[in-house]
């Protein structure tokens, strides 16, 4: 039976929109997470492959910035390279988005099996910070994933950067204006399906969610739950 997000201590800023769209919720990281919409999981999976949006805000994420951040992350065992605006996958499924020479966003995996965000936040302290400072992304940034073969066409309506798959290759990052909001767009395909993680200001979640739904209407796009995205990923 689906839990009620209102009963939870923490919930996505989008919970009213998700409830209105008929979401069934389960608890992830103490938050109510939309797992599915309706009972036809095959139709939901087909939608994820064509054009869909999924709220990943209950999943763990963190961030760090400062001139010595790359060295500190490397000392924690993270594998990152020099090029900015690239996503670097880790052995345990976590992803590290390098936004510039000194700024990073750490995203957990869809199955929530990685402990990297918690491990990093546990290892970092203000007392020992020297050129590396924490950016609490869970509390400041919303996270959605846009999936499906029409995703790039949908983005063309709200974003000036060319995100077509042949020009914006997998693991690329665009930090740009999206429906007049600043956002980080990371291409990380899921099981062969075109997918873009979008990280943006948490307080504007409802606005951008609505803008995405409006833009994807002509492609038949609708919200899907985390279960469909996990099925795409094979986890």
């Amino acid at each position: 039976m689906s839990l009620n997000p209102i009963d939870r201590r923490a919930r996505s800023f989008l919970y009213r929109e998700l409830m209105a769209a008929g979401a069934s919720f389960a608890e992830i990281n103490g938050q109510a997470c939309a797992m599915r919409f309706g009972s036809d999981s095959l139709a939901e999976l087909a939608r994820a492959r064509a054009m869909a949006i999924c709220d990943l805000s209950p999943l763990r994420r963190t961030g760090y910035k400062g001139w010595a951040t790359a060295e500190w992350l490397a000392a924690q065992g993270c594998r990152i390279e020099d090029a900015p605006n690239r996503v670097y996958g880790q052995d345990d499924g976590a992803r590290i988005a390098r936004l510039s020479r000194g700024e990073f966003v750490v995203l957990s995996d869809l199955a929530q099996s990685t402990t990297l965000p918690d491990r990093l936040d546990g290892a970092w302290s203000i007392a020992s910070a020297n050129g590396c400072f924490r950016v609490p992304r869970t509390d400041s940034s919303a996270w959605v994933v846009i999936t499906g073969e029409h995703a790039a066409s949908m983005f063309a309506k709200v974003c000036g950067v060319d995100l077509r798959p042949h020009t914006f290759v997998n693991h690329s990052i665009a930090q740009t204006s999206l429906a007049r909001m600043n956002a980080i767009i990371c291409r990380s395909d899921i099981g062969g399906t075109l997918a873009f993680d979008v990280v943006f200001d948490l307080a504007s979640s409802v606005y951008l969610w609505g803008a995405f739904l409006d833009a994807m209407q002509e492609f038949g796009g609708k919200p899907v739950g985390l279960e469909a995205i996990r099925t795409l990923a094979g986890v």
């Binding site: 900015p84 605006n85 510039s100 000036g160 950067v161 665009a174 930090q175 740009t176 204006s177």
Partner: peptide, 17 residues
Amino acid sequence: MKIIHCPLNGPRNAQEF
């Protein structure tokens, strides 16, 4: 649309600057 080349992010709409 006027385009400015950002050294970090590449060509972007001038409204972003």
